[in-house]
Design a protein around this nucleic acid. Structure first.
Lengths: 238, 238
DNA sequence: CGCGCATTTGACACAGCTCAAGTTAGGTGG
DNA sequence: CCACCTAACTTGAGCTGTGTCAAATGCGCG
């Protein structure tokens, strides 16, 4: 169970990537992870492939089954903002009005389950518990957005990085929280935290040098001094 | 109808402020502004008075009837973030899970209508349209939060100020969109935009000097060149 | 084994912050 | 009604964290 994200994250070349390799992970996904076991279609998505585009009509709701996904917004001048990093079990694309505000792209080869919006809403129309659940999910997203507003509004670069690392660590599969597999690039992290690539890189280097974190292969980070990170993350700037 | 916010905003000393002065504005509030005409209690709130505190149990939902309200979060070290400015008709406090994430305070003498959460949720349990409406309201809040994330993540000080002014102008009562009555202090604006008071002040001064806006009495701003503001607001930094 | 892209590192610039000193205005008391 | 008084705001000068630009390094992929 802890290994299925890794299976997908394993460095498979795009050409050699085979759906069935990841499909078996569906069976091993935690019970109850699916919103509706019986409906919805599982789709394999390649690294960097778009699941839906910005301003696309919001005809489907999605859930990450394996791998990971980012939602991004692009501005006219090329500026980019990453809104969320989504892990197995996370739902996305369901709190839109008519069109998606963001595009969704796979961070790595992934599996997503797609639900027809029409069907889900029809079900919700009939089932109050489901309607409640949808609302609570949206409220949870809103709360997350508020946390990020705090981060972007009040925190310094090192505080943002510390917060990000702890967040990633907490969301990682229950095993081995001390080791974080970062499926996203430095650019993704930068655009998520409102920083530049260089600042992200420099800040991580500082943490590595002072022994707070360990880094092997750029994409694997070890938390050596969680207390130090928590201290950084807890205090807004000044 | 356009005058009722001003009635409340008028400089009444705290001691002399009388509920009945603002109570009559209830009658003049636009039809259908209330979530539920029949239930809920109208409460007068004084300037800077707390409507609910951060981490208070979320037992009530609220709606601004007259005047305006801010929601704020305070950090251990005194840092502050303003989350929203709420105008007549706006709902707040209803997209929380158990406790309020933010405190709500009146920007100026105001009237808010308070709904028992228990009652509203019981109603929503029975009325699908109401449940839908609540969900859509939360989705709208989420969308707003996303806009603010973009602002805090990508925009320069002058772009943030321009965006803020346009936003305030658009939300003002239909009449006289060119004149904005800023009920909030510079500190509130700064904490809303992730800037310092000084930067807010300086940026407004620049806009005043180059003729984009006019300012009389600090709290009243005239938009003289809306196109210039829109140009500033549309482009993220760089 | 070598190429190309992501990442790291370095040097420098500048937007916005800090600290500090004026200025204005709204509220209070004479 | 006017003058004071205090708090909010504005303005100024200098500093610093983060962005920018550029070069070096390293890693993954062919």
């Amino acid at each position: 169970m802890s290994g299925h994200a890794q299976t997908i994250a394993a460095p498979l070349s795009a050409d050699r990537w085979q759906p069935q390799l990841v499909l078996h992970t569906l069976a091993s996904s935690p019970a109850g992870l699916d919103l509706f076991e019986e409906i919805g279609t599982v789709l394999p998505v390649r690294r960097d492939q778009e699941i839906y585009g910005q301003d696309d009509p919001a005809d489907y709701y999605y859930q990450v089954i394996g791998g990971s996904v980012r939602t991004v917004k692009l501005m006219a001048d090329g500026r980019r903002q990453v809104s969320e990093f989504l892990m197995p079990g996370d739902l996305f694309g369901f709190d839109e009005l008519d069109r998606h505000d963001f595009a969704a792209e796979a961070l790595e080869n992934a599996l997503v389950k797609r639900y027809s919006r029409r069907v889900v809403e029809a079900l919700a129309q009939r089932s109050m518990p489901l309607a409640q659940k949808l609302r609570h999910l949206t409220i949870a997203k809103l709360r997350r957005a508020h946390e990020r507003l705090l981060l972007l509004g009040c925190m310094t670069a090192s505080e943002r990085i510390a917060t990000f690392l702890l967040q990633m660590s907490d969301r990682a599969p229950a095993s081995a929280k001390a080791w974080i597999a970062l499926a996203m690039s430095r650019r993704d992290i930068a655009d998520y935290l409102g920083l530049t690539i260089e600042t992200v890189s420099r800040t991580l280097s500082v943490l590595r040098v002072d022994g707070t974190i360990g880094m092997l292969k750029k994409t694997r980070i070890e938390i050596r001094d969680r207390a130090a990170l928590e201290c950084l993350a807890s205090e807004p700037r000044h």
